[in-house]
């Protein structure tokens, strides 16, 4: 498997992401875009004044290209918080900024692990609405905190992606 990762130092800015999470992120990107040969460009959020500093925390936005430098889409790594623990997840977009995949990469605690359900996470795919946990996103008993956290984070990530689009930063 050949995965090229460029602008690697930008990852350092995202403290707390283990090599294992990065590997799992690469695997998710590989699987969705059906290519094991791609490049990633990190889009730095530091200069985006339209976003609050706390909105940028724990977010890594990546532009994904194939070997011919053709844009495939975007991937955003982020963290959520459950009852006892943080968890890592990835949101994958196509070039039209439609959410195509949400995957929990690392979930340590046993409590709230229901959010890892592929079928539950499908609710976010191609869903342009503002997500409201318990209303247009089904509640998950036993995983309230984790589920609410990932819903809020995905709303925030959608906002970040739109902001990047309108500030012409998605290049």
């Amino acid at each position: 498997m050949k995965i090229l990762s460029i602008f690697i130092p930008a990852f350092i800015l995202f403290g707390g992401v283990s090599d294992k999470v990065k590997q799992k992120a690469n695997k998710a990107i590989t699987r969705y875009f059906e290519t094991d040969s791609f490049t990633k460009k990190i889009i730095l959020l530091d200069d985006i004044s339209e976003l609050q500093s706390d909105e940028k925390e724990n977010k890594v936005v990546m532009h994904i290209f194939d070997n011919d430098s053709k844009s495939l889409g975007y991937a955003v790594l982020s963290k959520g918080k459950g009852r006892f623990d943080y968890f890592d997840f990835i949101v994958i977009y196509n070039n039209n900024l439609d959410v195509k995949k949400v995957k929990v990469l690392e979930y340590t605690s046993s409590r709230g692990a229901e959010i890892c359900s592929h079928n539950w996470l499908k609710q976010f795919v191609d869903n342009k609405q503002f997500h409201d946990y318990g209303k247009n996103i089904d509640a998950l008993s036993g995983a309230t905190m984790s589920a609410e956290s990932i819903v809020n984070e995905i709303n925030l990530i959608n906002k970040i992606m739109l902001t990047l689009k309108f500030t012409d930063s998605l290049k």
Binding site: A113, S117, H118, N119, W120, D138, L140
Partner: peptide, 10 residues
């Protein structure tokens, strides 16, 4: 054992 493979169901 808990199974959570169906959305909304545990």
């Amino acid at each position: 054992v808990d199974y959570y493979g169906i959305s909304g169901l545990t």
